[in-house]
Design a protein around this nucleic acid. Structure first.
Length: 324
DNA sequence: TTGTGTTTTATTGCCTCC
DNA sequence: GGAGGCAATAAAACACAA
Protein backbone atom coordinates (compact mmCIF):
# COMPACT_ATOMS: atom_id res chain seq x y z
CA UNK A 1 0.00 0.00 0.00
CA UNK A 2 1.16 3.48 -0.76
CA UNK A 3 2.02 5.61 2.21
CA UNK A 4 0.78 9.17 2.40
CA UNK A 5 3.06 11.48 0.51
CA UNK A 6 3.22 15.22 0.49
CA UNK A 7 3.99 17.28 -2.54
CA UNK A 8 5.49 20.70 -2.10
CA UNK A 9 5.24 23.92 -3.94
CA UNK A 10 1.94 25.40 -4.81
CA UNK A 11 -0.29 26.87 -7.38
CA UNK A 12 -2.90 29.44 -6.58
CA UNK A 13 -5.33 27.04 -4.99
CA UNK A 14 -3.19 24.05 -4.36
CA UNK A 15 -2.84 23.37 -0.69
CA UNK A 16 0.32 21.39 -0.92
CA UNK A 17 -1.04 17.92 -0.32
CA UNK A 18 -2.40 15.62 -2.93
CA UNK A 19 -5.13 13.25 -2.05
CA UNK A 20 -4.61 9.56 -2.48
CA UNK A 21 -6.61 9.67 -5.68
CA UNK A 22 -4.59 12.53 -7.02
CA UNK A 23 -1.35 10.80 -6.16
CA UNK A 24 -2.49 7.59 -7.74
CA UNK A 25 -3.41 9.36 -10.93
CA UNK A 26 -0.25 11.38 -10.91
CA UNK A 27 2.12 8.53 -10.23
CA UNK A 28 0.50 6.36 -12.82
CA UNK A 29 0.93 8.87 -15.59
CA UNK A 30 3.59 11.55 -15.54
CA UNK A 31 5.23 11.50 -12.16
CA UNK A 32 8.56 9.89 -11.54
CA UNK A 33 8.35 6.69 -9.60
CA UNK A 34 9.56 6.05 -6.11
CA UNK A 35 10.46 8.59 -3.45
CA UNK A 36 11.18 11.29 -5.94
CA UNK A 37 7.73 10.84 -7.32
CA UNK A 38 6.14 12.18 -4.21
CA UNK A 39 8.48 15.14 -4.29
CA UNK A 40 7.49 16.17 -7.72
CA UNK A 41 5.88 19.55 -7.44
CA UNK A 42 3.35 20.75 -9.97
CA UNK A 43 4.56 24.33 -9.56
CA UNK A 44 7.25 25.75 -7.42
CA UNK A 45 7.84 29.26 -8.64
CA UNK A 46 5.28 30.86 -6.36
CA UNK A 47 5.98 28.75 -3.34
CA UNK A 48 6.07 30.71 -0.14
CA UNK A 49 6.82 27.68 1.89
CA UNK A 50 10.01 26.48 3.19
CA UNK A 51 10.06 23.20 1.48
CA UNK A 52 11.45 19.91 2.41
CA UNK A 53 13.22 20.68 5.63
CA UNK A 54 10.06 22.06 7.08
CA UNK A 55 8.38 18.75 6.77
CA UNK A 56 10.99 16.71 8.49
CA UNK A 57 10.73 15.95 12.12
CA UNK A 58 14.18 16.06 13.58
CA UNK A 59 13.31 13.89 16.49
CA UNK A 60 15.90 11.22 16.77
CA UNK A 61 18.04 12.63 14.02
CA UNK A 62 21.72 12.90 14.92
CA UNK A 63 21.08 11.44 18.31
CA UNK A 64 18.51 13.81 19.70
CA UNK A 65 15.74 16.32 19.25
CA UNK A 66 16.47 19.28 17.14
CA UNK A 67 14.64 22.52 17.16
CA UNK A 68 12.52 23.22 14.14
CA UNK A 69 13.82 26.78 13.97
CA UNK A 70 17.40 25.69 14.38
CA UNK A 71 17.17 23.81 11.14
CA UNK A 72 16.93 26.99 9.11
CA UNK A 73 20.10 28.43 10.53
CA UNK A 74 22.24 25.59 9.42
CA UNK A 75 22.71 25.93 5.73
CA UNK A 76 25.69 23.66 5.89
CA UNK A 77 23.42 20.85 6.75
CA UNK A 78 20.90 21.47 4.01
CA UNK A 79 22.24 18.70 1.90
CA UNK A 80 22.06 16.30 4.81
CA UNK A 81 18.56 17.40 5.64
CA UNK A 82 17.49 17.00 2.07
CA UNK A 83 18.97 13.57 2.13
CA UNK A 84 17.14 12.83 5.34
CA UNK A 85 14.02 14.20 3.84
CA UNK A 86 14.39 12.18 0.69
CA UNK A 87 14.76 9.20 2.89
CA UNK A 88 11.62 10.04 4.79
CA UNK A 89 9.65 11.51 1.95
CA UNK A 90 6.98 8.88 2.04
CA UNK A 91 6.85 8.55 5.78
CA UNK A 92 4.44 10.31 8.00
CA UNK A 93 6.39 12.87 9.93
CA UNK A 94 5.49 14.52 13.17
CA UNK A 95 5.71 18.20 13.79
CA UNK A 96 8.52 19.39 15.99
CA UNK A 97 7.92 20.46 19.55
CA UNK A 98 8.37 24.08 18.61
CA UNK A 99 5.91 23.83 15.79
CA UNK A 100 3.36 22.19 18.03
CA UNK A 101 3.96 24.78 20.71
CA UNK A 102 3.43 27.56 18.23
CA UNK A 103 0.26 25.98 16.93
CA UNK A 104 -1.03 25.37 20.44
CA UNK A 105 -0.55 29.01 21.27
CA UNK A 106 -2.38 30.02 18.16
CA UNK A 107 -5.15 27.56 18.88
CA UNK A 108 -5.47 28.98 22.37
CA UNK A 109 -6.12 32.39 20.92
CA UNK A 110 -8.71 31.20 18.43
CA UNK A 111 -9.61 27.64 17.61
CA UNK A 112 -11.02 28.48 14.22
CA UNK A 113 -8.70 29.16 11.37
CA UNK A 114 -9.36 31.91 8.87
CA UNK A 115 -7.57 31.58 5.52
CA UNK A 116 -5.26 34.51 6.20
CA UNK A 117 -4.16 33.13 9.49
CA UNK A 118 -3.67 29.71 7.98
CA UNK A 119 -1.31 31.09 5.36
CA UNK A 120 0.46 33.21 7.95
CA UNK A 121 1.01 30.26 10.25
CA UNK A 122 2.15 28.13 7.36
CA UNK A 123 4.73 30.73 6.46
CA UNK A 124 5.95 31.13 10.00
CA UNK A 125 6.24 27.43 10.62
CA UNK A 126 7.35 26.40 7.19
CA UNK A 127 4.45 24.06 6.75
CA UNK A 128 1.85 23.70 4.09
CA UNK A 129 -1.43 25.53 4.73
CA UNK A 130 -3.14 22.21 4.36
CA UNK A 131 -1.11 20.84 7.24
CA UNK A 132 -2.09 23.77 9.40
CA UNK A 133 -5.72 23.18 8.55
CA UNK A 134 -5.44 19.49 9.36
CA UNK A 135 -3.69 20.21 12.61
CA UNK A 136 -6.43 22.62 13.68
CA UNK A 137 -9.09 20.18 12.67
CA UNK A 138 -7.54 17.38 14.68
CA UNK A 139 -6.92 19.72 17.56
CA UNK A 140 -10.57 20.77 17.59
CA UNK A 141 -11.57 17.12 17.67
CA UNK A 142 -9.27 16.50 20.65
CA UNK A 143 -10.60 19.57 22.39
CA UNK A 144 -14.15 18.41 21.86
CA UNK A 145 -13.40 15.00 23.33
CA UNK A 146 -11.78 16.55 26.38
CA UNK A 147 -14.68 18.91 26.77
CA UNK A 148 -17.13 16.02 26.71
CA UNK A 149 -15.15 14.23 29.39
CA UNK A 150 -15.07 17.38 31.46
CA UNK A 151 -18.81 17.90 31.11
CA UNK A 152 -19.43 14.30 32.03
CA UNK A 153 -17.36 14.59 35.19
CA UNK A 154 -19.10 17.79 36.15
CA UNK A 155 -22.55 16.30 35.66
CA UNK A 156 -21.57 13.23 37.57
CA UNK A 157 -20.33 15.29 40.51
CA UNK A 158 -23.54 17.25 40.55
CA UNK A 159 -25.52 14.07 40.44
CA UNK A 160 -23.56 12.58 43.34
CA UNK A 161 -24.14 15.68 45.42
CA UNK A 162 -27.81 15.72 44.62
CA UNK A 163 -28.17 12.06 45.43
CA UNK A 164 -26.38 12.51 48.72
CA UNK A 165 -28.66 15.39 49.66
CA UNK A 166 -31.65 13.39 48.67
CA UNK A 167 -30.63 10.46 50.85
CA UNK A 168 -30.05 12.79 53.77
CA UNK A 169 -33.51 14.23 53.33
CA UNK A 170 -34.99 10.78 53.15
CA UNK A 171 -33.37 9.87 56.42
CA UNK A 172 -34.55 13.08 58.00
CA UNK A 173 -38.03 12.37 56.79
CA UNK A 174 -37.98 8.90 58.33
CA UNK A 175 -36.79 10.31 61.63
CA UNK A 176 -39.55 12.88 61.67
CA UNK A 177 -42.11 10.32 60.74
CA UNK A 178 -41.03 8.05 63.55
CA UNK A 179 -41.26 10.95 65.95
CA UNK A 180 -44.78 11.75 64.76
CA UNK A 181 -45.90 8.19 65.34
CA UNK A 182 -44.41 8.17 68.77
CA UNK A 183 -46.07 11.41 69.79
CA UNK A 184 -49.38 10.46 68.23
CA UNK A 185 -49.50 7.31 70.27
CA UNK A 186 -48.54 9.19 73.36
CA UNK A 187 -51.25 11.76 72.82
CA UNK A 188 -53.84 9.16 72.08
CA UNK A 189 -53.14 7.30 75.29
CA UNK A 190 -53.14 10.48 77.27
CA UNK A 191 -56.39 11.84 75.89
CA UNK A 192 -58.15 8.55 76.06
CA UNK A 193 -57.16 8.36 79.69
CA UNK A 194 -58.79 11.75 80.27
CA UNK A 195 -61.88 10.75 78.30
CA UNK A 196 -61.71 14.02 76.40
CA UNK A 197 -60.95 12.89 72.91
CA UNK A 198 -63.75 12.89 70.43
CA UNK A 199 -62.29 10.43 68.00
CA UNK A 200 -65.04 10.88 65.48
CA UNK A 201 -64.11 14.51 65.05
CA UNK A 202 -60.50 13.45 64.87
CA UNK A 203 -61.34 10.96 62.19
CA UNK A 204 -63.32 13.44 60.15
CA UNK A 205 -60.57 15.93 60.33
CA UNK A 206 -58.01 13.34 59.35
CA UNK A 207 -59.95 12.16 56.34
CA UNK A 208 -60.61 15.67 55.17
CA UNK A 209 -56.97 16.56 55.36
CA UNK A 210 -55.85 13.34 53.76
CA UNK A 211 -58.05 14.06 50.78
CA UNK A 212 -56.33 17.39 50.43
CA UNK A 213 -53.03 15.70 49.92
CA UNK A 214 -52.49 16.53 46.31
CA UNK A 215 -49.28 17.73 44.82
CA UNK A 216 -48.74 21.45 44.62
CA UNK A 217 -47.94 22.10 40.95
CA UNK A 218 -45.54 24.90 41.71
CA UNK A 219 -43.33 23.30 44.30
CA UNK A 220 -44.05 19.65 43.56
CA UNK A 221 -44.62 19.20 47.25
CA UNK A 222 -47.88 17.75 48.55
CA UNK A 223 -50.27 20.65 48.88
CA UNK A 224 -51.21 19.58 52.34
CA UNK A 225 -47.69 20.16 53.50
CA UNK A 226 -47.65 23.55 51.82
CA UNK A 227 -50.95 24.44 53.39
CA UNK A 228 -49.76 23.44 56.81
CA UNK A 229 -46.59 25.38 56.39
CA UNK A 230 -48.59 28.46 55.54
CA UNK A 231 -51.02 27.99 58.39
CA UNK A 232 -48.30 27.30 60.86
CA UNK A 233 -46.43 30.36 59.80
CA UNK A 234 -49.47 32.61 59.97
CA UNK A 235 -50.57 31.33 63.36
CA UNK A 236 -47.38 32.67 64.87
CA UNK A 237 -48.08 30.67 67.96
CA UNK A 238 -45.60 28.78 69.98
CA UNK A 239 -47.68 25.66 69.66
CA UNK A 240 -46.97 25.27 65.98
CA UNK A 241 -44.58 22.49 66.72
CA UNK A 242 -45.93 21.73 70.11
CA UNK A 243 -46.15 18.00 70.19
CA UNK A 244 -48.79 18.21 72.86
CA UNK A 245 -51.17 20.14 70.64
CA UNK A 246 -54.08 18.05 69.36
CA UNK A 247 -54.29 20.27 66.33
CA UNK A 248 -50.69 19.62 65.41
CA UNK A 249 -51.03 15.95 66.05
CA UNK A 250 -54.13 15.46 64.00
CA UNK A 251 -52.68 17.31 61.08
CA UNK A 252 -49.44 15.46 61.09
CA UNK A 253 -51.25 12.24 61.50
CA UNK A 254 -53.58 12.87 58.65
CA UNK A 255 -50.78 13.92 56.38
CA UNK A 256 -48.84 10.81 57.15
CA UNK A 257 -51.62 8.27 57.08
CA UNK A 258 -52.15 6.51 53.84
CA UNK A 259 -55.57 7.31 52.55
CA UNK A 260 -56.39 3.67 52.01
CA UNK A 261 -55.15 2.70 55.40
CA UNK A 262 -57.02 5.54 56.95
CA UNK A 263 -60.21 4.56 55.23
CA UNK A 264 -59.71 0.96 56.26
CA UNK A 265 -59.01 1.88 59.82
CA UNK A 266 -62.19 3.89 60.13
CA UNK A 267 -64.35 1.75 57.94
CA UNK A 268 -66.62 0.83 60.81
CA UNK A 269 -67.42 4.40 61.51
CA UNK A 270 -68.25 5.17 57.92
CA UNK A 271 -70.41 2.15 57.41
CA UNK A 272 -72.42 2.49 60.56
CA UNK A 273 -72.82 5.90 62.07
CA UNK A 274 -74.86 4.56 64.92
CA UNK A 275 -71.85 2.85 66.36
CA UNK A 276 -70.11 5.53 68.29
CA UNK A 277 -68.64 3.87 71.26
CA UNK A 278 -65.09 4.78 72.14
CA UNK A 279 -63.96 1.22 72.23
CA UNK A 280 -64.43 0.65 68.53
CA UNK A 281 -62.59 3.85 67.73
CA UNK A 282 -59.84 2.90 70.08
CA UNK A 283 -59.38 -0.38 68.30
CA UNK A 284 -59.34 1.33 64.94
CA UNK A 285 -56.84 3.86 66.09
CA UNK A 286 -54.57 1.19 67.46
CA UNK A 287 -54.82 -0.91 64.35
CA UNK A 288 -53.98 2.16 62.31
CA UNK A 289 -50.98 2.87 64.46
CA UNK A 290 -49.83 -0.72 64.11
CA UNK A 291 -50.32 -0.66 60.42
CA UNK A 292 -48.35 2.50 60.07
CA UNK A 293 -45.62 1.27 62.31
CA UNK A 294 -45.34 -1.95 60.38
CA UNK A 295 -45.17 -0.13 57.07
CA UNK A 296 -42.78 2.50 58.22
CA UNK A 297 -40.40 1.65 55.42
CA UNK A 298 -43.02 2.22 52.77
CA UNK A 299 -42.70 5.31 50.78
CA UNK A 300 -44.63 8.34 51.86
CA UNK A 301 -47.46 9.20 51.24
CA UNK A 302 -50.29 7.89 50.06
CA UNK A 303 -51.61 9.99 47.32
CA UNK A 304 -53.15 8.57 44.24
CA UNK A 305 -50.68 10.49 42.15
CA UNK A 306 -47.96 8.00 43.03
CA UNK A 307 -45.60 10.73 44.09
CA UNK A 308 -43.25 10.58 46.98
CA UNK A 309 -42.97 13.23 49.62
CA UNK A 310 -40.53 15.17 47.48
CA UNK A 311 -42.59 15.06 44.40
CA UNK A 312 -40.34 12.51 42.69
CA UNK A 313 -41.98 9.59 41.03
CA UNK A 314 -41.40 6.66 43.34
CA UNK A 315 -39.68 4.65 40.66
CA UNK A 316 -37.22 7.46 40.09
CA UNK A 317 -35.88 7.55 43.59
CA UNK A 318 -32.86 5.62 42.57
CA UNK A 319 -32.13 8.22 39.91
CA UNK A 320 -32.28 5.44 37.43
CA UNK A 321 -31.73 7.74 34.50
CA UNK A 322 -28.05 7.72 35.31
CA UNK A 323 -26.18 4.59 34.46
CA UNK A 324 -22.68 3.64 35.35
C1' DT B 1 13.68 -6.72 21.32
C1' DT B 2 9.03 -7.14 20.69
C1' DG B 3 4.19 -6.87 21.30
C1' DT B 4 0.67 -3.76 22.40
C1' DG B 5 -1.74 0.37 23.46
C1' DT B 6 -1.88 5.39 22.64
C1' DT B 7 -1.11 9.58 20.10
C1' DT B 8 -0.52 12.14 16.04
C1' DT B 9 -0.91 13.07 11.20
C1' DA B 10 -3.49 12.53 7.25
C1' DT B 11 -7.42 10.79 4.18
C1' DT B 12 -12.12 10.10 2.86
C1' DG B 13 -16.80 11.05 2.44
C1' DC B 14 -20.50 13.71 3.59
C1' DC B 15 -22.66 18.03 4.79
C1' DT B 16 -23.42 23.06 4.97
C1' DC B 17 -22.74 27.61 3.51
C1' DC B 18 -22.00 31.22 0.34
C1' DG C 1 -19.79 24.24 -7.41
C1' DG C 2 -16.01 25.20 -4.47
C1' DA C 3 -14.36 25.82 0.24
C1' DG C 4 -14.24 24.41 4.66
C1' DG C 5 -15.91 21.73 8.70
C1' DC C 6 -16.67 17.36 10.92
C1' DA C 7 -16.89 12.26 11.94
C1' DA C 8 -14.84 8.13 11.07
C1' DT C 9 -10.94 5.87 9.99
C1' DA C 10 -6.11 4.48 8.48
C1' DA C 11 -1.55 4.31 9.39
C1' DA C 12 2.89 5.96 11.11
C1' DA C 13 5.18 7.31 15.22
C1' DC C 14 5.76 6.83 19.82
C1' DA C 15 5.68 4.93 24.75
C1' DC C 16 6.24 1.30 27.64
C1' DA C 17 5.92 -3.11 29.92
C1' DA C 18 7.57 -7.83 29.76
Amino acid sequence: MMAPGILYGGSSNFDGVFTQKQRDVFSSSTAPKGHLGSLFAPASSSSNFLGSSSMVSFRGVNGGKRSFFDSFDQDDNEADELGEYLHQAEKKRRLTDNQVQFLEKSFGEENKLEPERKVQLAKELGLQPRQIAIWFQNRRARWKTKQLEKDYDELRNRYDTLKSNYNNLLKEKEDLRTEVFRLTGKLFIKEKGNGQLDLRDEHKHSNALAKETVVDPMSNVPALVVKHQQEDLSSAKSDVFDSESPRYTSRMHSSVVDQDDSARAFETDQSDSSQDDDENFSKNMLSTANLLGKDADDDYPATSSNLSYFGFPVEDQGFGFWTY
